[in-house]
Write a protein that binds this DNA or RNA. Sequence first.
DNA 1: CGGAATCCGCCTCGATACTG
DNA 2: CAGTATCGAGGCGGATTCCG
Lengths: 125, 125
Amino acid sequence: MPTYIEGSGLPADVYSAKCPTREILDHIAGKWTVLIIDALADGTMRYTDLRHRIDGISQKMLTQTLRQLESDGFVTRTVHPTIPPRVDYTLTELGHSLRTPIAALREWIETNINRIEAARRAAAL
Amino acid sequence: MPTYIEGSGLPADVYSAKCPTREILDHIAGKWTVLIIDALADGTMRYTDLRHRIDGISQKMLTQTLRQLESDGFVTRTVHPTIPPRVDYTLTELGHSLRTPIAALREWIETNINRIEAARRAAAL
DNA sequence: CGGAATCCGCCTCGATACTG
DNA sequence: CAGTATCGAGGCGGATTCCG
């Protein structure tokens, strides 16, 4: 049984360019998005924690992606007015439910990496 | 138990920028990649089939993404030397095993779209 | 500490036109 | 039918500088 979009009544379908699901797919299906959601699976993390956990991410992309996740309602940003400042990032309930498919993707890559690399070498012929 | 990278012996870890898993994540985590893999889940499809199934994809992105998937060993490209030409795309065994996590992601979006839209409106305040 | 602001090269992506 | 070629806008992403 498909889900129907509130308002339009049309069935949810990522294959349809104008379906709201398409934009969400575009937001979620990104390298940094996946890594941040997955990193927050264990619980609250500070900005610097994330920066060090996710090797190779720049300040700009971290901030930018976090803002996107926040405005999509996946992540909560909490500012503690202390000196030095402290900002915590946590998954919302919605973001929490996204954990499972995201983690599944990461785990698939990690467990199959040797098969993948072998397939790439074979495909390169 | 983690997977270890053949050759280096290091544990597979997408959080590490230099780990080969990171590049694969970058290739897989994309709007078009997800849609193509998911579309091919049902079986072989021709170029034009894919073009019509995935609403809004340009010829360029379809060709480009298919080539990427092919060189990563997820998809097989078969050319039939007929007139008019016919090209079939099929998931390899590896690509087939990727179906599960990809479909899980698509399904999560489609079933939760109304929650997501509500959360976005709430986050926008 | 947790950003914001700015600059900038490059690559992505889409639109258009053309081809065997 | 299944692409290739080209172009141009925009976004990605890194580096740097500055701030409360």
